[in-house]
């Protein structure tokens, strides 16, 4: 009510909020992150275009990391089908599919719900294979320790300039399908230049799931992240998870 003269008229009040529109997602992501670190699990959010080779990279990771004794796990998101989860499970990465229907990205709540009936706590490295899309997944924090973007050499050198937000969010870019380079007019220098224009500190590894090129470095990168997050030597699966 108007308090100046007591006339009973309504008042127009400007309410300052300055609040992130994704604040709700960020809260759910923080909750996920606490659980992941508490349980000693390194969780990575793997993003990239459809067909960039995300699933193939993970299959190859299972082979390349066999000597590490890590227990791996994954959830794999697609609009439809559980094909990728079936492929990963066959490759030795117990996985389940998240079918998102029409949704073009995963959010923290969706990831949380999918984890409830999965033995992710007993893993050492857990991958969230996001929906194949270089736009929408970039802005949703899922609670991951790091974002990895897979970019294949068949996609063209200017992809980072076209999708800057995705590459800005990346902690590591895996240049995939490098075994195809002799058959393509792909200019690696141009790609690196494009990455430097959208990432202040680009970290890049060149890999091939087919030839095994670069996978040792990729596994070493994973190991380093485990160290960095204090997860080495931590026994997975001990921390409790209760919900009210």
């Amino acid at each position: 009510m108007c308090t100046t003269c007591g006339c009973g008229d309504t008042e127009l009040v400007p309410v300052e909020l300055h609040e992130k529109i994704l604040a709700g997602n960020d809260r759910a992501a923080r909750h996920n992150r606490e659980h992941f670190l508490e349980a000693g699990v390194l969780v990575l959010n793997l993003m990239g275009s459809p067909g960039s080779g995300k699933t193939a990279v993970l299959e190859a990771t299972a082979r390349a990391a066999a000597g590490k004794g890590w227990r791996l796990g994954a959830v794999s998101a697609d609009l439809a089908t559980d094909n990728d989860a079936v492929r990963l499970s066959k490759a030795g990465i117990p996985s389940r599919a998240i079918t998102t229907g029409q949704a073009c990205h995963l959010d923290a709540e969706l990831v949380h719900r999918s984890l409830h009936d999965l033995a992710w706590r007993q893993t050492d490295v857990f991958f969230i294979e996001n929906v194949g899309n270089l736009v929408c997944p970039a802005i949703y924090d899922l609670g991951q320790a790091a974002n990895v973007v897979v970019l294949s050499v068949t996609e063209g050198e200017d992809k980072p300039l076209k999708y800057p937000t995705m590459f800005l969010a990346a902690d590591l870019v895996l240049i995939s399908k490098c075994d195809l380079l002799p058959h393509l007019d792909f200019d690696m220098g141009k790609l690196e230049e494009a990455l430097a224009r959208v990432m202040p500190n680009p970290r890049v590894l060149k890999v091939s799931a087919r030839s095994g090129e670069g996978l040792e470095e990729w596994v070493a990168w994973l190991e380093k992240r485990r160290l960095e997050h204090g997860l080495v030597g931590k026994i997975a699966g001990l921390a409790g998870h209760t919900h009210g």
Binding site: E11, V13, K20
Partner: peptide
């Protein structure tokens, strides 16, 4: 540069 925020709302209150 990467903001996506609800800055404010104008509300009519009694």
């Amino acid at each position: 540069g990467d903001a996506l925020t609800l800055d404010g709302i104008d509300l009519e209150v009694p």
